[in-house]
Amino acid sequence: MSGSNTLTVNGKAFSLPDHVTPDTPLLDILRNTLGLTGTRFGCGLEQCGACMVLVDGQPVQACNAALDSVAGKAVTTIEGLAGPDGKLHPLQQAFLDEQAGQCGYCLSGILMAAKALLDRNPAPSRTEIAAALDANLCRCGSHIRILKAVERAAATLRAEG
């Protein structure tokens, strides 16, 4: 299992301390070792999507993803969604434009799931967006605005070419 104690997050390689073991969940490493608290703990059971990140572009719930399952892969979190210059990703801008959120606790995971969708399907239908977000729960009932925001972001990205 040697070699697991480095991790690439948002394009940056991190050397992890000794107490992080190959079976340590990715979410715990993000929040407690790297201080990247934007990825949320929701259930720890892979049932709610609050902890969703991208691993080599694929949406993965970080709560139960052990370090060795992501070793050598590229992890992207909500903190890596905006550009290096701080410019918001079109998804983030669209969520602000639609005021798509209430408590906001689910948004990090939803934004990452939406990013994975738009990366593979630049022109999703409303049904395809809903299907792509079905692993993500929202309790405030912001779904309607979130669906609109993803459609808006898709249009922006297509226009940007």
């Binding site: 929040r31 608290t37 703990f41 969520f95 602000l96 005021q99 959120g101 906001g104």
Partner: peptide
């Protein structure tokens, strides 16, 4: 008027929630 708390929430800003306090 846009929500004052939403920009931090869509960026995963530090200390957005109590849960993020370290």
């Amino acid at each position: 008027v846009p929500r004052a708390d939403l920009p931090g929430k869509v960026c995963g800003a530090p200390d957005t929630y109590l849960h993020d306090m370290r």
